[in-house]
Amino acid sequence: MRLLSDSIGRKVVMAITGLLMVLFVVGHMLGNMSIFAGANGINTYAEKLHGLPVVVWATRLVMLTAVLFHLVLSIAITLENNKANPTAYAVDRRLRATFAGKNMIWTGLLLGGFIVFHLFHFTIRSVPGMEIVQVQELSGRFDVFAMVAGAFGKGITALVYVVSMLMLYLHLSHGIQSTFQSVGLNNPKTMPGFVRFGSVLSVIFLIGYGAIPLAILFGLIGK
């Protein structure tokens, strides 16, 4: 029996790596919420977070591993599935499958691209054509608030982020409930609960993350 090549072994790996990334998404969103406490809020949060390099780098390492496994397996599985079902029916009528479920590979790949872009944008801070405001507060602390507010003040940047968060919403509205089925926790009693949990959580992510670029773009926070 093999974890990485047997069909169900890979399914379990997809579920667990997915779950790890969801945990990160929760933590990252909660941290980002500090921007609603103004410049002092997010700058203090950023300073405290970077005062814990072990936590930061351990998280990055785990996330990198999870993303790579999730990505490589999803491509392998999708190619196999296409081969196993090569001919479409003349009438395309689905009974249960959702738009989100059917497009997991595409929303996933777009999110993969977004993650790379996001890292180059705000972490490495070198995206050609998207120069970043890199200033320090009077105390000498790096001004994350000015960086984020400067970036999302441009409509195109805000749009990229909001659309990416729509992808996240679609991906997780199928992905979260799917995790419970994949690790074998589902039954008819728990399933509606898991589905609702996945829907609610993915909506919270959409609102929580989406609110930041929109609030800045429309001048609700900033200055």
Partner: peptide, 10 residues
């Protein structure tokens, strides 16, 4: 030659 499950529940 069967495929893998994506939890579509079709």
């Amino acid at each position: 030659g069967f495929g893998n499950c994506s939890n579509h529940y079709e």
